[in-house]
């Protein structure tokens, strides 16, 4: 696999090797090493603090359950919320990025891009407050409609929440939170695709969509996956907004519109941490470790998918 990646690269011997080179490459190598050290540090911290929580007997922790039954519903909720958020955010962010980079008039596009960048900075507390005060209220009649008309689908079985603070609402808020960063990365990548490729496609009579499909997307694929991974990472780990918006009860259900919803790991840590002490803290850290492992696994799968395709790097 690695041979296919190195193919297009200039060989190391192509440039003369000097003292500056050695220094520069060792700086960048140690920067990379430092990251590994940090990650190892976090992993060690999580393990050391978490293992007593995993081993704790049910009557030593506040939940009164042993670790697996305790963390299981949380894992389910975390994945459900993040996946719904990603399902919404990926197409929308690609659409928005494409609009800004290739569809909108250039000046307008850069203004819109600017506005969307700004949204990455809105603190999650504000997203949460907005989710409760505005979105939940507006979306609640839609949930009632869904229950009445599509109630035969288990997803919309209801009974519809009276306040609209459901896992679907939380996922929508999450998707909005990850949208700016995903859009920004996609946009930069779309803008960087080689002009010549695009022009060639257009010159052959391709429509704008065909040009995007043939000249932009293959080039941007790895970047889009990276952006999605960043978004997924944030969606999995987002704490405050979910804690505020979601009416969480720690159940396992696919019902998206009722007021009884699964909680997520990160939100549960935030909700329980303040009043926790002793082994309960360890159990919470252990659930953080589980989240870490999930992220690890998700990325592993994503990386495997991307690597199966040839890396598209540099303009050749």
């Amino acid at each position: 696999m690695s041979s296919s990646v190195t193919k297009g690269r200039p060989q190391k011997s192509a440039a003369p090797r000097r003292a500056g080179d050695v220094i520069f490459s060792s700086i960048s190598f140690s920067a990379a090493g430092l990251i590994l050290a940090t990650l190892a540090g976090v992993a060690i911290f999580l393990t050391v603090e978490g293992v007593p929580g995993i081993l704790a007997s049910p009557d030593e922790v506040k939940s009164g359950e042993s670790f697996l039954p305790y963390v299981g519903p949380l894992v389910f909720g975390t994945l459900l919320a993040a996946i719904i958020a990603l399902l919404i955010a990926v197409p929308v962010s690609i659409g928005v990025a494409l609009f800004i980079s290739h569809y909108a008039p250039r000046r307008l596009g850069s203004i819109f891009g600017y506005v969307i960048d700004l949204l990455a900075a809105v603190p999650s507390v504000v997203y949460g407050a907005w989710g409760i005060a505005f979105l939940a209220g507006k979306i609640q009649p839609i949930y009632e409609w869904l229950e009445k008309n599509l109630g035969f689908i288990p997803l919309f079985a209801g009974p519809a929440s009276a306040t609209g603070r459901t896992i679907l609402t939380a996922s929508i808020v999450l998707s909005l939170m990850i949208l700016p960063i995903m859009t920004a990365i996609c946009r930069e990548i779309f803008l960087q695709t080689p002009r010549l490729h695009q022009e060639a496609a257009l010159a052959l009579g391709a429509t704008r969509w065909e040009m995007a499909r043939l000249a932009i997307f293959p080039y941007a694929r790895s970047g889009i996956v990276s952006a999605s991974m960043l978004g997924l990472g944030r969606a999995l780990g987002e704490t405050m907004a979910v804690a505020m918006v979601l009416s969480a009860s720690g159940v396992v259900t696919f019902n998206l519109i009722s007021s009884t919803n699964p909680s997520t790991i990160a939100a549960n840590i935030a909700l329980s941490f303040g009043e926790a002490s002793g082994l309960t803290v360890n159990a919470l850290v252990a659930s953080g470790l589980v989240l870490f492992v999930i992220t690890f696994a998700v990325n592993f799968v994503a990386r495997a998918i991307v690597d199966r395709r040839k890396e598209f790097s540099g303009a050749n």
Partner: peptide
């Protein structure tokens, strides 16, 4: 520098993992 090496691939992968660290952790 590391393009194509095992180390670079691992770093790239682990950096992705790092994005998933919840802020409270």
């Amino acid at each position: 520098y590391g393009e194509g090496t095992r180390m670079a691939r691992w770093i790239r992968f682990l950096v992705d993992v790092m994005t998933g660290i919840p802020s409270i952790v």
